[in-house]
Amino acid sequence: MTERLTGTERVKRGMAQMQKGGVIMDVVNKEQAKIAEEAGAVAVMALEKVPSDIRAAGGVARMADVSIVEEVRDAVSIPVMAKGRIGHIVEARVLEALGVDYIDESEVLTPADDIFHLDKKPFTVPFVCGCRDLGEAARRIGEGASMLRTKGEPGTGNIVEAVRHLREVQSQVRKVVHMNEDELMTEAKNLGAPFEVLLQIKEAGRLPVVNFAAGGVATPADAALMMELGADGVFVGSGIFKSNNPAEFARAIVEATTNYQDYEKIAALSKGLGEAMKGIDMKTLRPEERMQDRSF
């Protein structure tokens, strides 16, 4: 038997490749986790409160209680992700020790470090991180993130920021791909991006890791929109369990993500689904309430 190499870049990025075209759902207990699995989620994100409740509660949002992570982990056979605070090395190590399959170093929680993100390379467990533009995306890849998600504005049920961030990243990737190599260093400086990551993007013609959309998906049509715009998959936080019919919303969002260009099907899926989460207009959010601005 030849040597077994764990925690390699291919193994960590590959895990995210297996999630493509799927929906990852926020859950706060085993009942919700089972609803998500039954609906066809490709993974669940175990946390203490969904983002809209974190907003409502205020105060410091931390890694979920270990008992919640364990309860969710033991309830389903699909992968389990969990959120740790930005820069919180120990929360991340604890989640790794609990055997979660992916860690989200997340701006939805209150950052533990307001200057540095985690050095994610030494971990065996892979990380997903948020981004609003290519500079942020490339810095996270440089730190060792194995998956990205455009941030949107979590817990709002409003898709506008998710669309803005995905369009921004896509457009900046296209620009880099078509640049001459002698223009790349200045672009790296302007974006605040590691040169090597931009070079990889230029050579591959795309981001070197999977990029999901997040932050504001509330309906099947929202999920399909993000796929149409080029997301590899979708995170749904408050959108499912803050709707008035979570099991149906979950199923419909999964099917709409797979069949995102089958508009008759999306029409059928959306019919009589009941009320989506209420949602928040961006103009009513105070600057300190914007979770997307919490990382660097």
Partner: peptide, 26 residues
């Protein structure tokens, strides 16, 4: 096992002369 046990290994495959670089994920 779970993701932290996911691994790469060279695999001997019947009919292939050289080992195959296999990536096992969960």
């Amino acid at each position: 096992g779970r993701q932290k046990d996911s691994f790469e290994a060279d695999l001997t495959v019947k009919g292939m002369e050289e080992p195959y670089p296999a990536i096992f994920i969960r």
